[in-house]
Design a protein around this nucleic acid. Sequence first.
DNA 1: CGGCGATTGTCCAACCAATGTCAATGCATC
DNA 2: GATGCATTGACATTGGTTGGACAATCGCCG
Lengths: 315, 315
Amino acid sequence: MDTTHLDPTVPRHPISVVAQRTGLTPDVLRVWERRYGVVAPGRGGGGQRVYSDADIARLRLLRDATLAGRSIGQVAPLSTGELARMVEEDLAARAEHRPEADRREFRELVEAMVVLAGQLDGARLDATLRRAAARLGLPQFLTGVAVPTLRRIGEEWHAGRLSPAHEHLASSIFHDIVADALRLAAPDPAGPVIVVATPAGERHVNGALAIAALAAVSGWNVTYLGADLPADAIAQAAVAAGAAVVALSLTHADDRRRVAGELRTVRDALPPAVVLLVGGNGAATLGRDLLPAGVEVVDTAADVPHLLSRYADRP
Amino acid sequence: MDTTHLDPTVPRHPISVVAQRTGLTPDVLRVWERRYGVVAPGRGGGGQRVYSDADIARLRLLRDATLAGRSIGQVAPLSTGELARMVEEDLAARAEHRPEADRREFRELVEAMVVLAGQLDGARLDATLRRAAARLGLPQFLTGVAVPTLRRIGEEWHAGRLSPAHEHLASSIFHDIVADALRLAAPDPAGPVIVVATPAGERHVNGALAIAALAAVSGWNVTYLGADLPADAIAQAAVAAGAAVVALSLTHADDRRRVAGELRTVRDALPPAVVLLVGGNGAATLGRDLLPAGVEVVDTAADVPHLLSRYADRP
DNA sequence: CGGCGATTGTCCAACCAATGTCAATGCATC
DNA sequence: GATGCATTGACATTGGTTGGACAATCGCCG
């Protein structure tokens, strides 16, 4: 088995692929190179630019920095490390925008939900959560209430204070609520296309559903495929739907090696121009080293809308 | 190795980033600097302002201070340390903190909706609004988008640029969306009881529906009766449901005298302990003098949750 | 309560530099 | 010859600057 495709510095992508993967137009890629020398791609036989994975990563950082309001002239001379730090900072600053009062409200709500789940009071759990979802809006509900609550219940379960039954109850209630909300917030047929699923071996759908809902309210045309899908099925669906982005959710990553292999298989099966995002708890525990090239990680649910907005160029 | 990223006094942020991180508009940043010298940012090559992290921190404090009700002229000369102390005090003093920072987004959305209504593009209007409602949550959607949009369309109609058909289209779409959301956010049977309706002669239901939805997400047990209800029917329903509050919505008040009479009839038919609220455009135009005693006016939709919380002590 | 300066956020006009886009042309490949 | 990419230069748009005007709001005074 050759290892060339593991080396991120070997050039292999034409400009059109880089354009779609970064959300920048070919014109911008060329003019940034000409005016600021942001990257130095190799050249193919006929003189065409050939970009490496490292080039793409740097261009993504530059795009993020400009999207955050910085001018390309200012950030172009920075090293890739400095860029990464700056982008990280901008992202963190965005999250910090939430006022303190809301945080406390969220925490109280989460604790109340854990108690209700502990009492197996499904009806009240359902009603309270539906009201919270309608009041807060999907992004705040998902990132501020749903995800923390499921995480807390998971912790309680590991600590032996709650059983799998509690976890299943809460999980299925969340699923129904988000599914209802997703149905209500109809995907925009005119929007850019995203395919959301869970890779083979992953049967927990809530992460994928959350991503789908966040994408839908952000104006994406969402195709939600559900859980436990083999790589070729995902790739075929992506091609058939004309997807610009494929998002996968990983909740468990017990066998990290196997999961990483599955991700690589999906990446290889997808057209090079399609962006592959991975979110969920499992994605974080996977670690940078095990992550195949060309796969982007969504750290927290709160990042999803912002991250997606980068790839929302529409023909 | 450089350590510049650790020094908070080195200037490195353009004005747009500062605007995002502080929530202040670039205009405000410049005019505060010009008039009060709140910060002294460096200048880049082309004369653009470049702010340091310390500048941003100070500007955030100034923003918090002004948001707490202090005038910029008073707080601008203070040192950063004094500012921090003052903001801390203010925050502790009033836990209630409503962030209306998303105004610009709302305004753009409203204008887009008016355009879509003008084109009689019901499908896109419906889809866009549903996504907005799911994203923002009902309170923000109703007070920030729905009510302003309907008001703007009403203005356009009066100015002769839109016809009643446009107004009806938008109105019915809003109705369906809020009704769906209300159904999804099931009223809490354990909450205090509120009866929502429209008095005899008033056939516009959107105001009442908005109040019902706001009450439902605030944890009230909502009984929504619809439009054009005679006084005795309202009173009987209130008694039967054990209502603590009856809320009526007035959109038109063409014949102010008749409407005032109707309100008085309702008030007299209700048990004295029941609070009677009146909201909507018509309520404002009614005027204090024509308002019967024992009837409370809701000035804007944003006040509804706050106002209701005052009467929510009933078991 | 009404009126009246002072305060304050917003907007506009004019200008400039930075930046993104486009058109024209040429080359290589299928 | 159609397609995709490269190069070049022109062009339009964006976003920043200053200075000033403006309307709404606030606090004070009568």
